[in-house]
Amino acid sequence: MRVQLFLTCLGENFFSSTLQDLVRVLERIGVDVAMPEGQTCCGQPFYNSGFQSQAIAPARNFLRVFAPTDGYIVAPSGSCVDFVRHHLPELFQDPREHSIAQEIAARTYEFSEFLVRVLNVRDVGATFPHKVTYHASCHALRGLGLREESKELLRAVKGLELVPLNEEETCCGFGGVFSVIYPEVSASMMHAKIANIQASGADYVVMGDPGCLMNIAGGLHKIGSPIRALHTIQVLAANGGAQ
């Protein structure tokens, strides 16, 4: 089986190593990976900030890049997949484009969704002997209905001790443009999330969305916390070495 990688703009620009890890994990379980050239941004930032008409050009490029491909499209981000699945098709009034968009949306998956719901895989051969807690990113949780998938994958990692996070499902405060339109509120929410992470006793906090990761990792770094924030994929790629 061969899947198409949807890099996502945050993933590509800030978390290149996570994308590399995604390739390693997929190859380790016998899935080939292709990277369609020419991909840019799917258009979500424009759509979410109200510039719906400006989301069309990037979205059209997304169609142009992925239409000639076939097979599953996999992304390291719940919010991007939520956008592609639930909003991108409605941007296109033209019946032909609309139908192409729907076809692509129907085979686009968030990584944990792909592993667990499509491949029915839980154990990806990872080793990560550390205490880990999990933050549930909002779009994967409520947009895509993914509640247990990442946790099932984490529980199958050798040596990993998964500890609960108080207010696991409460938003971390990123919210895309929200983080820069209302920085005080965003920061307040981030601090509350970090306080919960510290109280969990974990050495690592993992999550499946680059947006949350930028926010929480930045917040932890700012206070000089020894707790490290990782993308779930980084843990799934690990095989015993320190990260």
Binding site: L5, L7, E12, N13, F14, F15, S16, L19, Q20, V23, M35, S179, V180, I181, P183, E184, S186, A187, M190, M214, N215, A217, G218, G219, H221, K222
Partner: peptide, 24 residues
């Protein structure tokens, strides 16, 4: 500014888009 609206409360990870080169 305007990027300081992010950095006033936490740092931004450095841009490191090198995945495509690695993959290719």
């Amino acid at each position: 500014p305007p990027a300081n609206r992010w950095t006033m409360t936490r740092p931004l990870p450095a841009f490191n888009a090198n995945f495509r080169a690695w993959f290719r």
